[in-house]
Design a protein around this nucleic acid. Structure first.
Length: 418
RNA sequence: CGGGGUGUAGCAUAGUGGUAGUGUACUCGGUUUGGGACCGAGCGGUCCGGGUUCGAUUCCCGGCUCCCCGACCA
């Protein structure tokens, strides 16, 4: 893509209404636009990052046999009334609206009930199980106080998955597979080193529920981490009996701010019972389905990465989720020969399938470099008059600042491994 | 939802009961061209409603907005 055609612009000034580093950087670099408190639009660059993360999750979900679908944003009041969760006393984040035709609808803050209800149409027998489905959905939650930029919004994108099994044994198979898939996602997104499966409260049918927490100063949760054991304990369940249960001592744990980037739940048969989702077993009895639910906050993950991977000059995207792999920056564009040379490289990158943002603007070097640093694309390739004379490009690794002068062939060998 | 603060141009800010200033961005002209360059010229603004006043961007009341602390976060 040509930067001259990218409609977004960078800005030097930090937005006055953002304190969170993630929002400051993402807005300054033109990845997101704030519509109102806790509600952000994803602009072309931010959209690309979001899609990269979604694709990683999609691949990992597909790998464990989950099937993608998409539920609705508008939800049926009756379904939630059945489980006693339509009431604002029970769920305090509802957005609700009146239908002009009469009656009420809810805006989806979760899809547990609707999806369980829907599955009544498709699950009738033990032969229909197990099945796992997932979706990427915009969740709407009427938070009393949005904060931390994109990390806690009123509207956000979540991947939520739901498993349906005949019983606990089968459920555990998918539950454990999800744990692995989740850790794969965090590794691939670039936060694997700092993400831990975390024991938390809220397990209705087990002693703990499992969260995935990433070490992050801006995180809202306080947890106790053991890097050696690869686990963390949410402070809400941090007590002697938990320590004993997990076989860890307080001395091997470090108190840390963390951001919840995922959580998984075991619903047992309760949820299915509430919504009336049953299957016929081998002897013809109706049995409630054993359900699990699995969530990853996609847009929150973007915020966490922005918080963790940035410096005083701007964002520093991990290669796996960067909007582009290469930022080709043309200098001395007033010189037609240099400009044509850079154009040729741009075309070659595209031919070779390298995702490249081409700064073909007629701007001064300082401005281009500052923008490039702010955007945080992993590799900057500088095409200049000097380089053209020497027959090399300056390749700068954003994360480390390492500078290499490579010939065209060396550069292709580097960026196009096949 | 309780408490505190905030609102001036696209963005960031200053100031004042009497014609609202600066930076940046943008437009035009010129000089520049490896770290947000310089000179000149321009476009563009007081959250909404009410009150006090000859006159309100300023003071008062109400609303809304955004931010922070707390509570909440299945």
């Amino acid at each position: 893509m040509r930067q001259s055609q990218l409609f977004t612009k960078t800005r030097k000034e930090i937005p006055a209404d953002e304190v969170a580093k993630n929002a400051q950087l993402l807005i300054r670099a033109g990845y997101i636009y704030k519509e109102m408190a806790g509600v952000y639009a994803y602009l072309p660059l931010g959209m690309k990052v979001q899609e990269k993360i979604k694709q990683i999750i999609r691949e990992e979900m597909n790998a464990v046999g989950a099937q993608e679908l998409i539920m609705t944003a508008l939800q049926n009041k009756q379904i939630w009334e059945q489980t006693g969760r339509w009431d604002d006393e029970a769920v305090d984040v509802w957005f609700k609206s009146e239908l002009k035709a009469g009656g009420e609808v809810g805006f989806g803050w979760s899809h547990e009930e609707p999806i369980g209800n829907m599955m009544k149409n498709y699950i009738a027998s033990y032969k229909d199980l197990p099945v796992t489905v997932y979706q990427f959905q915009t969740k709407l939650r009427n938070e009393l106080r949005a904060k931390s930029g994109v990390m806690r919004g009123r509207e956000f994108v979540m991947k939520d998955a739901y498993s349906f099994s005949v019983g606990e044994e089968d459920h555990n198979i998918i539950y454990e597979a999800m744990k692995v898939a989740y850790m794969n996602v965090y590794k691939r997104v670039g936060v694997g080193e700092d993400t831990f499966i975390t024991f938390a409260s809220g397990g209705a049918f087990t002693e703990f529920s499992h969260e995935f927490q990433t070490i992050c100063d801006a995180g809202e949760d306080i947890c106790y981490v053991s890097r050696e054991k690869g686990i963390a304990i949410n402070e809400e369940v941090m007590n002697p009996s938990t320590l004993k249960e997990l076989g860890v001592t307080e001395s091997e744990l470090v108190k840390t701010n963390m951001a919840e980037v995922g959580n998984i739940f075991n619903f047992g048969r309760q949820k299915a019972e509430d919504v009336g989702l049953t299957y016929k077993n081998e002897t013809g009895e109706d049995v409630p389905v054993w359900m699990g639910s699995y969530g990853i906050g996609v847009t929150r993950l973007i915020g966490v990465v922005a918080e963790k991977f940035s410096d005083d000059k701007g964002l520093v995207w991990p290669e796996s989720i960067a909007p582009f792999k290469v930022h080709l920056v043309a200098l001395n564009t007033e010189d037609a020969e240099v400009r044509d040379w850079a154009e040729g490289i741009f075309a070659a990158f595209k031919d070779k399938g390298v995702e490249v943002l081409f700064d073909d603007r007629d701007a001064r070097p300082g401005e281009k470099f500052a923008d490039s640093d702010l955007l945080g694309i992993p590799y900057r390739v500088v095409a200049s008059r000097k380089g053209r004379e020497a027959g090399t490009f300056e390749v700068v690794t954003r994360a480390t600042g390492e500078i290499r002068n490579l010939t065209e062939e060396e550069m292709y060998a580097d960026f196009c491994p096949e």
